[in-house]
Design a protein around this nucleic acid. Sequence first.
DNA 1: ACCTGAACACCGTTCAAGT
DNA 2: ACCTGAACACCGTTCAAGT
Lengths: 201, 201
Amino acid sequence: MARRSEHSLEELKAMVLDAAESIIIEEGFSALKVRKIAVAIGYTVGSIYMVFANMADLVMHINARTLDAIAAQLEQVQDCSAEQSIESLAVTYFSYASQNFNRWCKVFEYRLPADAEIPDWYQEKVDNVFALVEERFAELAPELSEDLRKRATRTLWSGVHGICVLSVTGKQDKAGIKDVEEMIVLLVRNFMRGWIACSNK
Amino acid sequence: MARRSEHSLEELKAMVLDAAESIIIEEGFSALKVRKIAVAIGYTVGSIYMVFANMADLVMHINARTLDAIAAQLEQVQDCSAEQSIESLAVTYFSYASQNFNRWCKVFEYRLPADAEIPDWYQEKVDNVFALVEERFAELAPELSEDLRKRATRTLWSGVHGICVLSVTGKQDKAGIKDVEEMIVLLVRNFMRGWIACSNK
DNA sequence: ACCTGAACACCGTTCAAGT
DNA sequence: ACCTGAACACCGTTCAAGT
């Protein structure tokens, strides 16, 4: 029963994306299967390959949405002193990660077997998240070169991310949410204290 | 051609483990398949399930070996001032991660769909790695409670780990090995500076 | 042009049957 | 008791065939 142009390819693409996103959110990262998506949108598997090259391509587009959601969340952080803002950004990041666990995981699940390149439009979204933190570093040390600021941002944020990752990979019970939040604050405060004390680098 | 007790079950287990480890090291995380292991050791797939419950079980045992290797590497770090030692431990950790990329990845690849518990013998190996870092924190602040030291260790080490993860996930080209090492040193130095300055917590 | 659905290659896992 | 190997259920992906 070929349903000719009941939906445009654009519409189909959006439907696939929505359905896949729902599956990940509701059933987790390992439940995403082409056949399940097909059933959800009322098409057959073949149709999905009309709008996405393969599963990896689809997942990359879902991850892009997640990165947008993270950026949107971070943008809502109240503006105050730079130090305080950076701390709030870090806690907000963790809060997003724990509340949107399955989506967040997918982004950092290991990826692309060596050969595959990260597309520019995707890298932009990653940079966009970092940029929100970097702005505050700029307020704090406007005299520093962009390079040094970028490095400090990347360093601290990777650290914050690492705490989120290990707290979530290891043992959810042993390290409760409150503990993780405290660890993040501890990392940010100590790093910032050290960073400011030694004003350059 | 059933080969009766040509090897003991213990020997078989070791053979499977060795073969699987080699595949991961040489061909990467996605190349590990039961059939490939079976061919490598000259048995059929069924035999593997005589000594391991399933793939996840097998992988967990490989990861245990990797954790042992990491601990062994960290133990070789020269003894000097606590601050210097912690920095060296962090750089050594990254060095192991980048030189044993595939094995290291497997350990932190996402895991166990919710239900599965982490066995005690495995958790011990994880704790063992942390303990090596914690010792130096103890030298640095012997007056602190074990709890506060553990938290500081876990925080900093998660941060170091995060830098390794993102540097390896994101873009190997853009952030070269030298850059990553500098980021790790930056994180450790600033964190330690901040931590010491504010002697408690 | 759009869509189907059967087919393909490839997984992990099981288990009756052999020695 | 140890081991085989065929079978099962389930993947992602392709493509000739239909409308």
